[in-house]
Design a protein around this nucleic acid. Structure first.
Lengths: 223, 223
DNA sequence: CAAAAAATTTAGGCTAGGCTAAAATATTTT
DNA sequence: AAAATATTTTAGCCTAGCCTAAATTTTTTG
Protein backbone atom coordinates (compact mmCIF):
# COMPACT_ATOMS: atom_id res chain seq x y z
CA UNK A 1 0.00 0.00 0.00
CA UNK A 2 1.12 3.58 -0.42
CA UNK A 3 2.28 4.94 2.91
CA UNK A 4 -1.21 6.17 3.77
CA UNK A 5 -4.57 5.81 2.08
CA UNK A 6 -5.92 9.32 2.45
CA UNK A 7 -9.55 10.30 2.30
CA UNK A 8 -8.85 11.77 -1.09
CA UNK A 9 -7.38 8.52 -2.39
CA UNK A 10 -10.36 6.62 -1.05
CA UNK A 11 -12.65 8.90 -3.01
CA UNK A 12 -10.70 8.48 -6.22
CA UNK A 13 -10.74 4.70 -5.90
CA UNK A 14 -14.42 4.56 -5.05
CA UNK A 15 -15.38 6.60 -8.09
CA UNK A 16 -13.01 4.73 -10.36
CA UNK A 17 -14.65 1.49 -9.21
CA UNK A 18 -18.07 2.79 -10.09
CA UNK A 19 -16.91 4.07 -13.46
CA UNK A 20 -15.24 0.73 -14.20
CA UNK A 21 -18.55 -1.01 -13.48
CA UNK A 22 -20.17 0.77 -16.39
CA UNK A 23 -17.78 1.10 -19.29
CA UNK A 24 -14.23 -0.20 -19.13
CA UNK A 25 -11.44 2.15 -18.04
CA UNK A 26 -12.40 5.34 -16.19
CA UNK A 27 -11.47 8.49 -18.09
CA UNK A 28 -9.68 11.45 -16.55
CA UNK A 29 -12.60 13.66 -17.39
CA UNK A 30 -15.26 11.43 -15.87
CA UNK A 31 -13.29 11.16 -12.66
CA UNK A 32 -12.80 14.92 -12.58
CA UNK A 33 -16.52 15.51 -13.08
CA UNK A 34 -17.50 13.11 -10.33
CA UNK A 35 -14.98 14.49 -7.86
CA UNK A 36 -15.67 18.04 -8.93
CA UNK A 37 -12.04 18.91 -9.48
CA UNK A 38 -9.98 19.97 -12.51
CA UNK A 39 -8.93 17.24 -14.96
CA UNK A 40 -5.30 18.31 -14.61
CA UNK A 41 -5.46 17.49 -10.90
CA UNK A 42 -6.83 14.05 -11.67
CA UNK A 43 -3.93 13.26 -13.99
CA UNK A 44 -1.51 13.99 -11.17
CA UNK A 45 -3.29 11.71 -8.75
CA UNK A 46 -3.64 8.90 -11.27
CA UNK A 47 0.11 8.94 -11.84
CA UNK A 48 0.65 8.78 -8.13
CA UNK A 49 -1.82 5.92 -7.61
CA UNK A 50 -0.26 3.99 -10.49
CA UNK A 51 3.26 4.27 -9.12
CA UNK A 52 2.36 3.46 -5.53
CA UNK A 53 3.61 0.20 -4.04
CA UNK A 54 1.66 -1.82 -4.66
CA UNK A 55 0.00 0.08 -7.52
CA UNK A 56 -3.64 0.91 -6.88
CA UNK A 57 -4.57 1.57 -10.50
CA UNK A 58 -3.39 0.60 -13.95
CA UNK A 59 -2.82 3.76 -15.90
CA UNK A 60 -1.82 4.31 -19.52
CA UNK A 61 -1.61 7.87 -20.78
CA UNK A 62 -4.71 9.02 -22.58
CA UNK A 63 -6.44 5.72 -21.96
CA UNK A 64 -7.96 6.06 -18.52
CA UNK A 65 -7.49 3.80 -15.52
CA UNK A 66 -8.72 0.55 -14.06
CA UNK A 67 -8.25 -0.66 -10.51
CA UNK A 68 -5.70 -3.23 -9.47
CA UNK A 69 -6.71 -5.91 -6.96
CA UNK A 70 -5.29 -3.72 -4.19
CA UNK A 71 -7.14 -0.67 -5.42
CA UNK A 72 -10.35 -2.64 -5.68
CA UNK A 73 -10.07 -3.81 -2.09
CA UNK A 74 -9.84 -0.23 -0.92
CA UNK A 75 -12.77 0.80 -3.10
CA UNK A 76 -14.95 -2.06 -1.88
CA UNK A 77 -14.15 -1.26 1.72
CA UNK A 78 -15.28 2.33 1.21
CA UNK A 79 -18.40 1.25 -0.66
CA UNK A 80 -19.24 -1.26 2.06
CA UNK A 81 -18.89 1.51 4.63
CA UNK A 82 -21.06 3.83 2.57
CA UNK A 83 -23.89 1.38 2.05
CA UNK A 84 -23.90 0.02 5.58
CA UNK A 85 -23.99 3.59 6.83
CA UNK A 86 -26.94 4.42 4.62
CA UNK A 87 -28.82 1.44 6.00
CA UNK A 88 -27.82 2.32 9.54
CA UNK A 89 -28.92 5.93 9.25
CA UNK A 90 -32.31 4.92 7.91
CA UNK A 91 -32.84 2.13 10.44
CA UNK A 92 -31.46 3.72 13.54
CA UNK A 93 -31.88 7.45 13.20
CA UNK A 94 -34.96 7.61 11.02
CA UNK A 95 -33.35 9.27 8.02
CA UNK A 96 -35.35 9.19 4.78
CA UNK A 97 -33.74 7.46 1.83
CA UNK A 98 -33.00 10.75 0.10
CA UNK A 99 -31.18 12.18 3.14
CA UNK A 100 -28.46 9.63 3.72
CA UNK A 101 -26.10 10.00 0.79
CA UNK A 102 -24.16 13.09 1.82
CA UNK A 103 -23.87 12.01 5.43
CA UNK A 104 -22.56 8.59 4.38
CA UNK A 105 -20.10 10.22 1.98
CA UNK A 106 -18.38 11.90 4.89
CA UNK A 107 -18.66 9.13 7.46
CA UNK A 108 -17.45 6.37 5.15
CA UNK A 109 -13.87 7.60 5.45
CA UNK A 110 -13.62 7.82 9.21
CA UNK A 111 -15.42 4.89 10.80
CA UNK A 112 -13.34 2.04 12.21
CA UNK A 113 -13.56 -1.60 11.23
CA UNK A 114 -15.13 -2.14 14.61
CA UNK A 115 -17.86 0.38 13.79
CA UNK A 116 -18.43 -1.34 10.48
CA UNK A 117 -18.74 -4.74 12.15
CA UNK A 118 -21.12 -3.44 14.81
CA UNK A 119 -23.38 -1.82 12.21
CA UNK A 120 -23.46 -5.00 10.13
CA UNK A 121 -24.35 -7.01 13.21
CA UNK A 122 -27.03 -4.56 14.35
CA UNK A 123 -28.58 -4.57 10.89
CA UNK A 124 -28.50 -8.36 10.54
CA UNK A 125 -25.77 -8.39 7.88
CA UNK A 126 -27.83 -6.86 5.08
CA UNK A 127 -26.89 -7.43 1.45
CA UNK A 128 -28.56 -4.32 0.07
CA UNK A 129 -28.79 -0.71 1.22
CA UNK A 130 -32.04 1.33 1.33
CA UNK A 131 -31.76 2.09 -2.39
CA UNK A 132 -31.36 -1.60 -3.17
CA UNK A 133 -27.67 -1.26 -3.96
CA UNK A 134 -25.57 -4.32 -3.19
CA UNK A 135 -23.32 -4.21 -0.14
CA UNK A 136 -19.90 -5.85 -0.54
CA UNK A 137 -19.42 -8.68 1.97
CA UNK A 138 -17.19 -8.36 5.02
CA UNK A 139 -14.39 -10.05 3.10
CA UNK A 140 -14.85 -7.52 0.31
CA UNK A 141 -16.56 -9.46 -2.41
CA UNK A 142 -19.19 -7.61 -4.41
CA UNK A 143 -22.24 -9.83 -5.02
CA UNK A 144 -23.21 -10.35 -8.65
CA UNK A 145 -25.76 -7.92 -9.98
CA UNK A 146 -28.27 -9.24 -12.49
CA UNK A 147 -30.32 -6.10 -12.85
CA UNK A 148 -30.71 -4.02 -16.00
CA UNK A 149 -31.87 -0.43 -16.54
CA UNK A 150 -35.59 0.11 -16.54
CA UNK A 151 -34.93 2.05 -19.74
CA UNK A 152 -34.14 -1.19 -21.54
CA UNK A 153 -37.67 -2.61 -21.07
CA UNK A 154 -40.35 -2.52 -23.76
CA UNK A 155 -44.13 -2.68 -23.94
CA UNK A 156 -45.77 -5.54 -21.99
CA UNK A 157 -42.58 -6.54 -20.20
CA UNK A 158 -42.84 -7.06 -16.45
CA UNK A 159 -40.07 -6.67 -13.92
CA UNK A 160 -39.22 -6.12 -10.26
CA UNK A 161 -37.50 -2.93 -9.13
CA UNK A 162 -34.15 -3.86 -7.66
CA UNK A 163 -32.24 -0.63 -7.05
CA UNK A 164 -32.14 3.06 -7.79
CA UNK A 165 -29.24 5.47 -8.00
CA UNK A 166 -28.74 7.14 -4.63
CA UNK A 167 -27.14 10.43 -5.47
CA UNK A 168 -30.04 12.66 -6.50
CA UNK A 169 -32.28 13.41 -3.50
CA UNK A 170 -34.96 15.06 -5.61
CA UNK A 171 -35.21 12.03 -7.86
CA UNK A 172 -35.37 9.76 -4.82
CA UNK A 173 -38.25 11.74 -3.35
CA UNK A 174 -40.10 11.55 -6.63
CA UNK A 175 -39.58 7.81 -6.94
CA UNK A 176 -40.78 7.28 -3.40
CA UNK A 177 -43.92 9.25 -4.20
CA UNK A 178 -44.80 7.24 -7.26
CA UNK A 179 -44.03 3.98 -5.47
CA UNK A 180 -40.92 3.09 -7.45
CA UNK A 181 -38.95 1.45 -4.66
CA UNK A 182 -37.01 -1.83 -4.44
CA UNK A 183 -38.91 -5.13 -4.61
CA UNK A 184 -42.00 -3.58 -6.18
CA UNK A 185 -43.34 -5.14 -9.40
CA UNK A 186 -44.08 -3.09 -12.50
CA UNK A 187 -45.40 -3.64 -15.99
CA UNK A 188 -44.58 -1.55 -19.03
CA UNK A 189 -47.73 -0.31 -20.67
CA UNK A 190 -46.08 1.64 -23.44
CA UNK A 191 -42.72 2.53 -24.92
CA UNK A 192 -42.33 5.64 -27.03
CA UNK A 193 -39.61 5.22 -29.61
CA UNK A 194 -39.40 8.99 -30.16
CA UNK A 195 -38.38 10.15 -26.71
CA UNK A 196 -37.77 6.83 -24.99
CA UNK A 197 -40.55 7.49 -22.47
CA UNK A 198 -41.97 4.48 -20.69
CA UNK A 199 -45.53 4.33 -19.41
CA UNK A 200 -45.59 1.93 -16.49
CA UNK A 201 -48.03 0.53 -14.01
CA UNK A 202 -46.55 0.28 -10.53
CA UNK A 203 -47.84 -2.43 -8.21
CA UNK A 204 -50.06 -0.89 -5.55
CA UNK A 205 -50.51 2.42 -7.37
CA UNK A 206 -53.83 3.49 -8.90
CA UNK A 207 -52.65 5.29 -12.02
CA UNK A 208 -49.95 4.74 -14.60
CA UNK A 209 -46.91 7.02 -14.76
CA UNK A 210 -44.84 8.17 -17.72
CA UNK A 211 -41.10 8.27 -17.10
CA UNK A 212 -38.38 9.81 -19.29
CA UNK A 213 -34.97 8.31 -19.81
CA UNK A 214 -33.46 10.65 -17.23
CA UNK A 215 -35.44 8.59 -14.75
CA UNK A 216 -35.54 5.16 -16.35
CA UNK A 217 -31.76 5.07 -16.79
CA UNK A 218 -31.36 5.48 -13.01
CA UNK A 219 -33.71 2.67 -12.03
CA UNK A 220 -32.61 -0.95 -12.28
CA UNK A 221 -34.84 -3.98 -12.46
CA UNK A 222 -34.79 -7.77 -12.69
CA UNK A 223 -36.97 -9.13 -15.47
CA UNK B 1 -15.28 33.09 10.84
CA UNK B 2 -12.10 32.24 8.97
CA UNK B 3 -12.95 31.12 5.48
CA UNK B 4 -13.26 27.51 6.60
CA UNK B 5 -13.10 25.81 9.99
CA UNK B 6 -10.95 22.80 9.17
CA UNK B 7 -10.80 19.61 11.17
CA UNK B 8 -7.41 20.72 12.40
CA UNK B 9 -8.76 24.05 13.64
CA UNK B 10 -11.61 22.26 15.39
CA UNK B 11 -9.08 20.12 17.21
CA UNK B 12 -7.01 23.08 18.30
CA UNK B 13 -10.05 24.89 19.63
CA UNK B 14 -11.39 21.85 21.45
CA UNK B 15 -8.12 21.27 23.25
CA UNK B 16 -7.66 24.95 24.04
CA UNK B 17 -11.12 24.94 25.58
CA UNK B 18 -10.24 22.02 27.80
CA UNK B 19 -6.94 23.58 28.82
CA UNK B 20 -8.66 26.88 29.59
CA UNK B 21 -11.06 25.01 31.88
CA UNK B 22 -8.19 24.01 34.13
CA UNK B 23 -5.63 26.79 34.41
CA UNK B 24 -6.06 30.09 32.61
CA UNK B 25 -4.46 30.52 29.20
CA UNK B 26 -3.42 27.41 27.28
CA UNK B 27 0.33 27.21 26.69
CA UNK B 28 1.93 26.42 23.37
CA UNK B 29 3.59 23.39 24.87
CA UNK B 30 0.45 21.93 26.41
CA UNK B 31 -1.41 22.30 23.16
CA UNK B 32 1.47 20.68 21.30
CA UNK B 33 1.53 17.77 23.72
CA UNK B 34 -2.20 17.17 23.46
CA UNK B 35 -2.24 17.38 19.68
CA UNK B 36 0.97 15.42 19.38
CA UNK B 37 2.66 17.94 17.13
CA UNK B 38 5.74 20.15 17.44
CA UNK B 39 5.42 23.35 19.50
CA UNK B 40 6.70 25.39 16.57
CA UNK B 41 3.74 24.21 14.52
CA UNK B 42 1.37 25.28 17.25
CA UNK B 43 2.76 28.81 17.31
CA UNK B 44 2.00 29.12 13.63
CA UNK B 45 -1.58 27.99 14.04
CA UNK B 46 -2.19 30.20 17.06
CA UNK B 47 -1.11 33.23 15.08
CA UNK B 48 -3.46 32.23 12.33
CA UNK B 49 -6.39 31.67 14.68
CA UNK B 50 -5.73 34.99 16.38
CA UNK B 51 -5.73 36.95 13.15
CA UNK B 52 -8.76 35.27 11.65
CA UNK B 53 -11.92 37.32 11.16
CA UNK B 54 -13.42 37.15 13.65
CA UNK B 55 -10.51 36.06 15.83
CA UNK B 56 -10.96 32.61 17.36
CA UNK B 57 -8.36 33.01 20.09
CA UNK B 58 -6.70 35.78 22.05
CA UNK B 59 -2.98 35.35 21.71
CA UNK B 60 -0.11 37.28 23.25
CA UNK B 61 3.40 36.11 22.52
CA UNK B 62 4.84 33.88 25.23
CA UNK B 63 1.62 34.01 27.23
CA UNK B 64 -0.56 31.31 25.79
CA UNK B 65 -4.07 31.64 24.38
CA UNK B 66 -7.66 31.83 25.47
CA UNK B 67 -10.73 31.38 23.30
CA UNK B 68 -12.83 34.25 22.03
CA UNK B 69 -16.62 33.89 22.05
CA UNK B 70 -16.44 32.73 18.43
CA UNK B 71 -13.72 30.22 19.22
CA UNK B 72 -15.65 28.93 22.18
CA UNK B 73 -18.75 28.33 20.07
CA UNK B 74 -16.74 26.17 17.72
CA UNK B 75 -15.15 24.29 20.61
CA UNK B 76 -18.49 23.65 22.30
CA UNK B 77 -19.99 22.40 19.07
CA UNK B 78 -17.19 19.89 18.69
CA UNK B 79 -17.41 18.84 22.34
CA UNK B 80 -21.18 18.42 22.02
CA UNK B 81 -20.64 16.23 18.99
CA UNK B 82 -18.02 14.20 20.81
CA UNK B 83 -20.07 13.55 23.91
CA UNK B 84 -23.31 12.85 22.10
CA UNK B 85 -21.42 10.43 19.90
CA UNK B 86 -19.97 8.63 22.90
CA UNK B 87 -23.45 8.23 24.34
CA UNK B 88 -24.81 7.11 21.01
CA UNK B 89 -22.11 4.51 20.45
CA UNK B 90 -22.69 3.03 23.88
CA UNK B 91 -26.47 3.07 23.64
CA UNK B 92 -26.97 2.05 20.06
CA UNK B 93 -24.03 -0.08 19.07
CA UNK B 94 -23.12 -1.63 22.40
CA UNK B 95 -19.68 -0.09 22.73
CA UNK B 96 -18.08 -0.26 26.19
CA UNK B 97 -17.21 3.05 27.83
CA UNK B 98 -13.51 2.57 27.20
CA UNK B 99 -14.00 1.98 23.47
CA UNK B 100 -15.77 5.13 22.38
CA UNK B 101 -13.20 7.88 22.70
CA UNK B 102 -11.14 7.33 19.56
CA UNK B 103 -14.17 6.67 17.41
CA UNK B 104 -15.83 9.86 18.64
CA UNK B 105 -12.64 11.82 18.05
CA UNK B 106 -12.87 11.08 14.36
CA UNK B 107 -16.63 11.30 13.91
CA UNK B 108 -17.03 14.57 15.80
CA UNK B 109 -15.61 16.50 12.85
CA UNK B 110 -17.75 15.08 10.09
CA UNK B 111 -21.30 14.63 11.34
CA UNK B 112 -23.94 17.12 10.23
CA UNK B 113 -26.11 19.25 12.46
CA UNK B 114 -28.94 17.00 11.42
CA UNK B 115 -27.05 13.96 12.67
CA UNK B 116 -26.37 15.74 15.93
CA UNK B 117 -30.04 16.61 16.37
CA UNK B 118 -31.19 13.09 15.58
CA UNK B 119 -28.77 11.58 18.08
CA UNK B 120 -29.87 13.99 20.78
CA UNK B 121 -33.48 13.15 20.08
CA UNK B 122 -32.88 9.40 20.04
CA UNK B 123 -31.00 9.61 23.34
CA UNK B 124 -33.63 11.79 25.01
CA UNK B 125 -31.46 14.92 25.10
CA UNK B 126 -28.94 13.69 27.64
CA UNK B 127 -26.90 16.15 29.70
CA UNK B 128 -24.01 13.79 30.44
CA UNK B 129 -22.06 11.27 28.39
CA UNK B 130 -21.20 7.72 29.53
CA UNK B 131 -18.25 9.02 31.53
CA UNK B 132 -20.45 11.56 33.26
CA UNK B 133 -18.99 14.48 31.35
CA UNK B 134 -21.39 17.33 30.73
CA UNK B 135 -22.79 17.77 27.24
CA UNK B 136 -23.13 21.37 26.00
CA UNK B 137 -26.75 22.21 25.16
CA UNK B 138 -28.01 22.51 21.59
CA UNK B 139 -27.53 26.27 21.80
CA UNK B 140 -23.96 25.71 22.94
CA UNK B 141 -24.05 26.52 26.61
CA UNK B 142 -21.89 24.37 28.86
CA UNK B 143 -23.76 23.47 32.05
CA UNK B 144 -22.06 24.46 35.29
CA UNK B 145 -19.86 21.79 36.81
CA UNK B 146 -19.76 21.62 40.61
CA UNK B 147 -17.55 18.57 40.87
CA UNK B 148 -14.07 18.44 42.37
CA UNK B 149 -11.25 15.91 42.03
CA UNK B 150 -11.56 12.82 44.16
CA UNK B 151 -7.94 13.57 45.08
CA UNK B 152 -9.11 16.59 47.09
CA UNK B 153 -11.12 14.48 49.57
CA UNK B 154 -9.87 13.50 53.01
CA UNK B 155 -10.60 10.80 55.59
CA UNK B 156 -14.29 10.28 56.46
CA UNK B 157 -15.56 12.50 53.64
CA UNK B 158 -18.37 11.06 51.53
CA UNK B 159 -19.16 11.93 47.93
CA UNK B 160 -20.88 10.83 44.75
CA UNK B 161 -18.86 10.00 41.64
CA UNK B 162 -19.85 12.42 38.92
CA UNK B 163 -17.46 11.95 36.04
CA UNK B 164 -14.19 10.38 34.99
CA UNK B 165 -11.69 11.39 32.34
CA UNK B 166 -12.46 9.55 29.11
CA UNK B 167 -9.14 9.36 27.33
CA UNK B 168 -7.38 6.42 28.96
CA UNK B 169 -9.11 3.17 28.07
CA UNK B 170 -7.04 1.11 30.53
CA UNK B 171 -7.97 3.41 33.40
CA UNK B 172 -11.62 3.26 32.37
CA UNK B 173 -11.61 -0.53 32.39
CA UNK B 174 -10.04 -0.52 35.82
CA UNK B 175 -12.55 1.95 37.19
CA UNK B 176 -15.41 -0.10 35.81
CA UNK B 177 -14.03 -3.16 37.54
CA UNK B 178 -13.79 -1.55 40.94
CA UNK B 179 -17.22 0.02 40.56
CA UNK B 180 -16.05 3.61 40.27
CA UNK B 181 -18.67 4.84 37.82
CA UNK B 182 -20.91 7.93 37.76
CA UNK B 183 -23.64 8.29 40.41
CA UNK B 184 -22.07 5.77 42.78
CA UNK B 185 -21.47 6.86 46.38
CA UNK B 186 -18.11 6.48 48.10
CA UNK B 187 -16.58 7.16 51.49
CA UNK B 188 -12.94 7.92 52.14
CA UNK B 189 -11.54 5.53 54.74
CA UNK B 190 -8.03 6.87 54.78
CA UNK B 191 -5.79 9.53 53.27
CA UNK B 192 -2.03 9.06 53.20
CA UNK B 193 -0.24 12.34 53.36
CA UNK B 194 2.97 10.77 52.07
CA UNK B 195 1.87 9.54 48.67
CA UNK B 196 -1.59 11.04 48.48
CA UNK B 197 -3.21 7.60 48.27
CA UNK B 198 -6.86 7.38 49.17
CA UNK B 199 -8.45 4.27 50.65
CA UNK B 200 -12.10 4.31 49.68
CA UNK B 201 -15.19 2.20 50.14
CA UNK B 202 -17.29 2.07 46.99
CA UNK B 203 -21.03 1.59 47.34
CA UNK B 204 -21.96 -1.96 46.39
CA UNK B 205 -18.39 -3.30 46.54
CA UNK B 206 -17.28 -5.71 49.25
CA UNK B 207 -13.71 -4.54 49.85
CA UNK B 208 -12.00 -1.16 50.07
CA UNK B 209 -9.62 -0.02 47.35
CA UNK B 210 -6.51 2.11 47.54
CA UNK B 211 -6.11 4.63 44.73
CA UNK B 212 -3.05 6.74 43.86
CA UNK B 213 -3.22 10.31 42.68
CA UNK B 214 -2.78 9.20 39.05
CA UNK B 215 -6.28 7.78 39.47
CA UNK B 216 -7.87 10.15 41.99
CA UNK B 217 -6.94 13.20 39.93
CA UNK B 218 -8.93 11.80 37.00
CA UNK B 219 -12.11 11.10 38.93
CA UNK B 220 -14.46 13.92 39.86
CA UNK B 221 -17.06 13.89 42.62
CA UNK B 222 -19.76 15.98 44.24
CA UNK B 223 -19.46 16.20 48.02
C1' DC C 1 -7.99 12.72 -44.54
C1' DA C 2 -7.21 17.19 -42.87
C1' DA C 3 -9.02 20.47 -39.78
C1' DA C 4 -11.59 21.43 -35.78
C1' DA C 5 -12.94 20.01 -31.34
C1' DA C 6 -12.39 17.47 -27.25
C1' DA C 7 -9.68 15.20 -23.92
C1' DT C 8 -5.49 14.78 -21.57
C1' DT C 9 -1.08 15.95 -19.90
C1' DT C 10 2.75 19.05 -18.58
C1' DA C 11 4.53 22.99 -16.27
C1' DG C 12 4.45 26.06 -12.79
C1' DG C 13 2.01 27.81 -8.63
C1' DC C 14 -0.64 28.01 -4.33
C1' DT C 15 -2.43 26.86 0.52
C1' DA C 16 -2.83 24.13 4.70
C1' DG C 17 -0.46 22.25 8.10
C1' DG C 18 3.09 19.84 9.40
C1' DC C 19 8.72 19.57 10.47
C1' DT C 20 13.71 20.88 12.27
C1' DA C 21 17.22 24.00 13.74
C1' DA C 22 18.40 28.11 15.63
C1' DA C 23 17.23 32.39 17.97
C1' DA C 24 14.81 34.77 21.46
C1' DT C 25 12.45 35.19 25.71
C1' DA C 26 10.95 33.50 30.42
C1' DT C 27 11.63 31.09 34.46
C1' DT C 28 14.15 28.77 37.89
C1' DT C 29 18.08 27.86 40.53
C1' DT C 30 22.09 28.85 42.82
C1' DA D 1 21.43 38.81 39.90
C1' DA D 2 23.72 35.78 36.97
C1' DA D 3 23.70 31.33 35.10
C1' DA D 4 21.24 27.46 33.68
C1' DT D 5 17.08 25.60 32.00
C1' DA D 6 12.74 25.62 29.86
C1' DT D 7 9.56 27.58 26.78
C1' DT D 8 8.32 29.91 22.77
C1' DT D 9 9.09 31.96 18.41
C1' DT D 10 11.29 32.68 13.88
C1' DA D 11 13.09 31.05 9.65
C1' DG D 12 13.27 27.99 6.19
C1' DC D 13 11.60 23.64 4.36
C1' DC D 14 8.41 19.81 2.89
C1' DT D 15 4.21 17.12 1.24
C1' DA D 16 -0.57 16.53 -0.20
C1' DG D 17 -3.67 17.95 -3.19
C1' DC D 18 -5.63 21.31 -5.47
C1' DC D 19 -5.42 25.28 -9.38
C1' DT D 20 -4.71 27.66 -14.29
C1' DA D 21 -2.56 28.11 -18.69
C1' DA D 22 -0.37 26.12 -22.33
C1' DA D 23 1.09 22.09 -24.91
C1' DT D 24 -0.01 17.73 -26.63
C1' DT D 25 -2.62 13.87 -27.99
C1' DT D 26 -6.90 11.69 -29.61
C1' DT D 27 -11.32 11.83 -31.64
C1' DT D 28 -14.73 13.65 -34.51
C1' DT D 29 -16.34 15.74 -38.48
C1' DG D 30 -16.77 18.21 -42.93
Amino acid sequence: MPETITQSIQDYLKHIYELNENGGAASTNDIATRLNIAPASVTGMLQKLASATPPLVVYKKHQGVTLTKSGEKVALEVIRHHRLLESFLVNTLGYAWDEVHNEADKLEHVISEDFEARMAEALGHPTRDPHGELIPSADLVMPADESCPLASLRTDETATIRRVSDDDPALLRHLREIGVVPEVKIIVKNYSEFDGNLTIKVEGQKSNVVLGTAVTSQVFVDK
